[in-house]
Amino acid sequence: MSASSRPRQRTLADRGIDGVTLLVLPAALFVVLLFVYPFVYGLLLSFAPKEGGWLGNYAKFFSDPYMYGTIWLTLRLALPVTLLNIALSVPVAMQVRHMRRQRLLTTILVLPITLGTVLVAEGLLNYLGPQGWLNRLLILFGLIDRPIRLVHNYWGVFISLVITGFPFTFLLTLSMISGIDPALEQAAATLGARARQRFFNIVLPLIVPGLAVTFCLAFVDAFSVFPSAVMLGAPAGETRVISFAAAQAAFEQYDYSYASAIAMIMAVVQFGFVGLVLTARGLFYNGPAGGGKG
């Protein structure tokens, strides 16, 4: 540091800012410039429609059932899938935490997350198709007598969201449950509590706040479903999700103002649910559950 910057440096240093602190600036500026600014720009752009007053885009969206219907179609997918994934994750995590070779299972489960929705959709197109292994197996066992339709409809997208979503919620839940001090459960067991009672009276209350956060992350992710809804679903019909409508506005009609408005509506719905869940979370116990490191 040069001598001329000394006095200023000292006053900043009093407030805890020195040369090292400034290292945070490039990254922070980058996020402000390319995340915060585009969001604000998009918000302002959405109030400057191609035609009509400043609310023109929003009026257009909410007066067209084909457009506002996408909110419901997306919720109809995202909400049940997220709840199912969490409901499955908790019992599985409760069993897996005692498992010795946990790493093999977690590695297999991290595969669908890593491969991404596009590959999962392509795999499911083969696997769930009328000639796919699943339908063949079900016919072989005599459970059905003709192939059931699992692709290009609601269920195709639903299954793909379980395949990518369950590992995500499970790994989060597992890290949460593993963080609970085993002494708490041992104490309850000594006092005669059965596994069921230990779960409902000790583990569950401790993980509810974490589950709320997991729900938010998983829901926001499922609500923005895009490639699998197009590839595995019926993008003109029952899986016309809101992100597809936004992408259409941007790349087929080249109406960036309208597309931004749809993206903002998407964000409002997502943040609305997150806000609701986090408010409800405040009603539960929110403190340390582990010994030392949480």
Binding site: Y41, A250, S260, A263, Q270
Partner: peptide, 14 residues
Amino acid sequence: LVPPITFGIPLATV
């Protein structure tokens, strides 16, 4: 935390 498609559309516009 914000899904890529939500901030991706305004970002692509910019």
